[in-house]
């Protein structure tokens, strides 16, 4: 292995891991705002909301080689929600799989970074998402196939709570449990929002925890914007006594309650919308708010660290 981001996690303390992920999440948010501003549009709200999840996965959990995105033993991250690609491109740039400079082409004609993620366009993009409810079905086959081939790679499928409307998601949920795909982890971004409005009003999916458990999954429900909680959940989902060396065991799902626009108060407080409008003059405000919030959190964190030392 040349430069996997994940050397044994036990070698690093939780505080250091958390700090590294939070810093990565901030950069992912910064990248997402940049892409949105250059294009004048984009799914910025979702990217900001999911940044902590993406940072946890790419900075802390997945094994991959940035210079060799097709490395056979890599862990696979499958983005079901194609429109979250803006967030994933930011994470891929952060991970060194695509150049940061390329982010400015997001959504442009001829770009490798289309607005809805396509596996054939982008290094590190494992599947073409966008038609929702596909990702978990492909993840099931990938996990089955890797296990059959004796490849211990982990398969992580990122899906949204709106995607739980799709029947195919539940076909796959049953299939994964039936085939005991212990190395499969589903991550559901529960931002309570879908195209036509609040998830609760479009098609009620709760009680989500009970549904996954009833399908035979190990379920973890966390604040998806709390990096510490995410790390603990992903650690437990990916390993432990629940999964044999052969990869047999109940699959795991990490249900992440997130906030659309997280990190930018202007967007957090705006009326929730699937495709959030941001006026031209507002991008500067967004950036200022993101940096101010990050600086404040850093300051608070340092103060807390000094208190603990003292």
């Amino acid at each position: 292995m040349t430069s996997s981001t994940l050397e044994p996690r036990t070698a690093t303390g939780m505080a250091e891991r958390r700090a590294a992920v939070e810093a990565a999440a901030h950069r992912i948010r910064r990248h997402a705002l940049f892409m949105g501003e250059v294009q004048g549009q984009g799914y910025v709200g979702q990217a900001l909301g999911a940044a902590d999840i993406l940072a946890t996965v790419y900075t802390d959990q997945l094994r991959f080689r940035p210079e060799d995105p097709e490395w056979e033993d890599r862990d696979r991250f499958l983005l079901s929600t194609g429109h979250y690609a803006i967030g994933l491109y930011a994470a891929l740039a952060e991970a060194g799989i695509i150049p940061v400079e390329e982010l400015e082409t997001y959504g442009s004609d001829g770009s490798r970074l289309p607005m809805s993620g396509m596996s054939t366009y982008t290094p590190g993009m494992e599947i073409s998402g966008g038609s929702l409810g596909h990702g978990l079905t492909v993840a099931v086959g990938l996990a089955l196939g890797l296990r059959y081939r004796g490849n211990a790679a982990r398969v992580v499928n990122f899906l949204s709570d709106g995607e739980l409307d799709e029947g195919s998601t539940w076909e796959a949920a049953m299939g994964a449990a039936h085939h005991r795909l212990g190395r499969l982890t589903a991550v559901v971004d529960i931002n309570a929002l879908q195209a036509d409005g609040a998830t609760a009003g479009v098609l009620r999916t709760e009680p989500v925890t009970d549904k996954w458990a009833a399908c035979g999954w190990r379920v973890f429900r966390v604040d998806g914007n709390d990096v510490g909680a995410l790390l603990e959940a992903f650690d437990a989902a990916g390993s432990g006594s629940a999964v044999t060396d052969d990869g047999e065991g109940a699959p795991a799902v990490v249900l992440c309650d997130t906030k659309v626009g997280r990190g930018v108060p202007l967007l957090e407080q705006r009326e929730k919308a699937h495709f959030m409008r941001i006026e031209e003059h507002e991008w500067a405000i967004c950036n200022e708010q993101l940096e101010a919030g990050w600086a404040a959190r850093q300051e608070a964190s340092q103060a807390k660290g000094q208190e603990e030392k003292a």
Partner: peptide
Amino acid sequence: GAAAGMAEAGL
């Protein structure tokens, strides 16, 4: 979907 995943795994 699963058949696609298995093909992605080299089968």
